[in-house]
């Protein structure tokens, strides 16, 4: 269990993270979603003991990160793809990491093979493409076979084949009972990758739930087509619903679909169609974070 507890981080006058609290459960892929600059990377850096929180704390299975005798065997992390010395080979980079945490060096060859970069293992990292660097980051993250994995924007720079590979990889890690925490600013990507989603904006907690939960709780409407749309629209408005009339039928808001069915039955109006409209995750995200985008286009224009 990864826990963020009333976390606050100031950089000078800038508030990067503002009283943020949430738990990340093992066994599922948890997406960490927010616009650029919303505090995702800062939160992850604090989880790894790299930045010191102004207030609050993060813990992993109840322990502070720096208390682990061999952190790489508890938590694997891929921060940004370029956090490797460009003059060092991929193999030497992983050897140095493994050695520091007393991880057997045979593991280095295994993870190079797994990440699909064994053929370039002795080349300098400076010559790697972004995709190859991402794969090296993933190799480094799983080096110690950790139970908790953190990935910061892992799909950046990957080709479609690589993205599919990484999605399956996350699912496998979660299936093995590990905690998998993946940040992204791309809602569409998270909808396909994550089971659980935590949304933040401007360093503050906004929402947490499954993709299903989040799309359902948003202001979804119900599409209704009936034998007598005009009369049904009137009855629904009387019942306090908002109704938009189109040629095909009615878009009804503010009342659940069960109530619409009952109103139609009471008035003897036959329904042809009754379909709850689910907002796309993208729409939910835009709606949830509309107030918290630091450099929104409207602001930029003014």
């Amino acid at each position: 269990m990864l826990r963020v507890d009333h976390l606050t981080k100031h950089y000078g006058d800038t508030v990067a993270v503002d009283d943020l609290s949430f738990d990340v459960a093992p066994g599922v892929v948890t997406g960490f979603l927010g616009p650029n600059g919303s505090g995702k990377s800062t939160t992850m850096r604090i989880m790894l003991g790299l930045d010191r929180p102004t207030k609050g704390r993060t813990s992993i299975d109840g322990h502070a990160y720096r208390d682990f005798p061999a952190p790489l065997r508890e938590v694997g992390a891929q921060l940004d793809a370029k956090s490797v010395h460009p003059g060092r080979s991929a193999r030497n980079h992983l050897r140095a990491l493994a050695t520091s945490n007393a991880i057997p060096l045979t593991r280095v060859d295994e993870v190079l093979e797994f990440a699909g970069i064994a053929s370039v293992a002795d080349k300098k990292v400076g010559g790697f493409s972004l995709g190859m660097s991402q794969r090296l980051g993933i190799a480094a993250a799983i080096l110690g076979d950790p139970g908790v994995l953190l990935f910061d924007e892992p799909v950046n720079g990957l080709d479609p084949e690589g993205i599919r590979w990484i999605r399956e990889f996350f699912a496998t890690l979660a299936h093995e009972g590990r905690t998998v925490f993946v940040s992204s600013h791309l809602m569409s990507e998270m909808a396909l990758t994550a089971d659980q989603i935590i949304v933040i904006g401007r360093g503050r907690f906004i929402a947490q739930g499954s993709v299903d939960d989040l799309t359902r709780t948003s202001a979804g409407t119900v599409f209704v087509a009936s034998a007598d749309d005009a009369r049904l629209a009137q009855r629904l408005r009387d019942a306090g619903a908002s109704v938009a009339v189109s040629e095909r039928g009615l878009d009804v808001g503010k009342v659940p679909s069960s109530a619409i069915g009952e109103i139609a039955l009471a008035d003897g109006i036959a329904l042809n169609e009754l379909t709850p409209q689910r907002a796309s995750l993208e729409e939910v995200f835009m709606e949830l974070t509309a107030d918290s985008i630091e450099y929104g286009s409207a602001r930029a224009a003014s």
Binding site: L48, L50, F68, L72, A77, L79, S83, H93, S100, N101
Partner: peptide, 18 residues
């Protein structure tokens, strides 16, 4: 300083928090 300029210092300190 090459660890700071390349960003590898974060990898280093994540592996060795002390």
């Amino acid at each position: 300083t090459s660890e700071y300029s390349s960003g590898s210092i974060r990898t280093t300190f994540a592996a060795v928090p002390r």
